[in-house]
Amino acid sequence: MAREVTQEAFAAAWADDALVVDVREADEYTAGHVPGARPMPLRSVPNRCDELPTNRPVFVICASGNRSKTAADWMNSRGIDAYSVADGTGAWARTGRPIAAGSHEHAA
Rank of each mutant, 00 (worst) to 15 (best):
I99M: 08
P35M: 04
Y29C: 07
Y29N: 06
A15C: 03
A101P: 01
W74C: 12
R3F: 05
A37V: 10
A71G: 08
W92I: 00
M40P: 06
D16E: 11
T30A: 15
S84A: 14
R38M: 15
E105F: 06
R38A: 13
M40E: 06
A72Q: 02
E28R: 06
A100I: 04
P39M: 09
A107L: 14
A13W: 03
G90F: 06
E28N: 10
P53D: 13
G32I: 03
R24N: 08
A91E: 06
K69M: 07
M40G: 05
E4Y: 01
A86F: 01
N47C: 11
D17P: 02
A9Q: 08
Y29A: 10
V58H: 07
A2Y: 00
A37H: 09
R97Y: 02
Y83P: 04
P41W: 04
A15T: 10
R56M: 14
P57I: 10
E105V: 10
A72N: 03
H106W: 13
A37P: 06
S68T: 11
F10L: 05
D27S: 14
G88N: 01
H106Y: 11
A91Q: 06
P98D: 04
R56W: 13
F59M: 04
R24C: 06
D17K: 12
N55M: 05
A86Y: 02
V21H: 10
V85F: 02
K69D: 03
V34R: 02
R78E: 11
V58T: 09
T70H: 07
T6W: 01
A11K: 05
T95I: 03
I61T: 02
P57F: 08
P46K: 14
S77I: 08
C62H: 01
H106T: 15
P39Q: 14
A93P: 06
V5I: 04
D22W: 09
P98R: 05
V60T: 05
A82N: 07
A107F: 10
P35F: 03
S64Q: 00
A63W: 03
G102L: 06
P53H: 11
P98H: 07
F59Q: 02
L42H: 05
A107E: 14
W14C: 05
A18Q: 08
P35G: 01
Q7C: 00
V85Y: 01
N66A: 11
R78C: 08
G79V: 12
A18G: 09
A15N: 11
P35T: 04
A13P: 04
